[in-house]
């Protein structure tokens, strides 16, 4: 009896492991296909074989330049920014134990935007292009340090949420102030377009500066599995199970700040990916917050690559901003989640 019962639990687990592995493979294959199709979508059509050949031989033909300088960095950024947003959303939802949490909630996106806006506003971005990403990452870093000083020590989740709201409001107000006081309308327009979020016209310079930071941040978040699973049972129980909540909180804050700060600094504000993706994938991993991390990274990358392809396909003339598209889809979804969560509470 004992052995058979034991067998059953192991078998159940192996079964669900198999399902999760299938999901990972499915997501990876879809990601691979989308990544390559993303390279061939745009105003100039590129022939698959010739362009790849010219890319490899580092020719300077027009198609090779388009491929190398425009399409490839754009696809790479979509991949990593999507993964960043997906895994950050999943990690924050696990930490705050709230399906409505998002990188925006703890104020990292907002303050990263503010950092980038300051780079615009001061004119530094016009003088040297790297000022923009540096501004964004500094903004995110400041938010992290502020959050940690305010909420890190006692690691109460409510304090963290409230601190996040404060950071978001403050950076929003300062961004509005910059727009308000902008001496020339051109700068204001530039800021305005920046805030919408887009992947158009990004170069390998952006890839080099942002991707390593995003990789570091994503890796930090993926290591939080066990802690997030235990946290599902509450802060006290997680601590009694040997989880150091201060470390876990710090690790998630730093991971989110690094990856989201870098992402925002190269692409502006792209909202709701971190909300939609974990929500859709959660049932497939048995609602386990730890298992959700990796699949959300893949799912986020998938969604953003897809959205970026859609943006290019449906745009004629003025390209629709990626951030506008994700918000148009994400905001009603957010409302739906709010209504659903409220019904559960009642």
């Amino acid at each position: 009896m004992l052995a058979t019962g034991n067998q059953r639990l192991i078998e159940r687990d192996r079964e669900s492991d198999k399902c999760e592995r299938k999901l990972l493979i499915l997501l990876s294959v879809a990601l691979f296909l989308l990544f390559f199709s993303s390279l061939f979508v745009g105003p100039v059509s590129i022939d698959l074989f010739s362009s790849e050949w010219s890319f490899l031989s580092e020719s300077t033909s027009v198609t090779a330049v388009i491929f190398q300088e425009i399409r490839l960095p754009r696809a790479i950024l979509a991949l990593f920014i999507g993964a960043t947003l997906g895994v950050s959303g999943a990690a924050l939802q696990g930490l705050l134990r709230n399906p409505l949490a998002e990188p925006g909630v703890i104020g990292v996106s907002g303050s990263a935007s503010l950092g980038a806006v300051i780079a615009f506003y001061s004119g530094a971005a016009a003088i040297f292009p790297l000022a923009l990403p540096i501004g964004g990452i500094s903004g995110a870093m400041l938010a992290v340090i502020f959050l940690y000083l305010l909420a890190g020590r006692e690691s109460s989740i409510l304090t963290l949420i409230l601190a996040g709201i404060a950071v978001t409001s403050l950076s929003g107000a300062l961004t509005a102030l910059a727009l308000n006081l902008s001496p020339n309308p051109y700068a204001a327009t530039e800021i305005f377009f920046w805030l919408m979020g887009s992947l158009a016209d990004r170069s390998f310079e952006h890839v080099y500066i942002a991707v390593p930071l995003m990789v570091f941040g994503i890796a930090s978040l993926l290591g939080c599995q066990r802690g997030l699973d235990a946290l599902a049972l509450g802060e006290d129980t997680a601590r009694s199970l040997g989880i150091n909540l201060n470390h876990l909180t710090l690790r998630i804050i730093v991971g989110v700040a690094l990856s989201v700060g870098a992402a925002v600094s190269v692409a502006g504000g792209i909202g709701f990916v971190g909300l939609v993706v974990p929500h859709l994938l959660r049932p497939f991993v048995g609602y386990q917050p730890g298992k959700l991390l990796l699949v959300s990274a893949l799912g986020g990358a998938l969604l953003l690559l897809l959205a970026d392809i859609v943006v290019r396909l449906i745009s004629t003339g003025q390209e629709l901003k990626l951030g506008v598209l994700t918000s148009l889809i994400g905001a009603p979804f957010f409302l739906y989640l709010v209504l659903k969560t409220r019904r559960q509470l009642l």
């Binding site: 134990r97 049972l233 609602y287």
Partner: peptide, 13 residues
């Protein structure tokens, strides 16, 4: 081991 009052579980595990 600590068993908290009022069994809390944030997700339908």
């Amino acid at each position: 081991a600590y068993l908290a009052q009022g069994a809390e579980c944030s997700w339908p595990l």
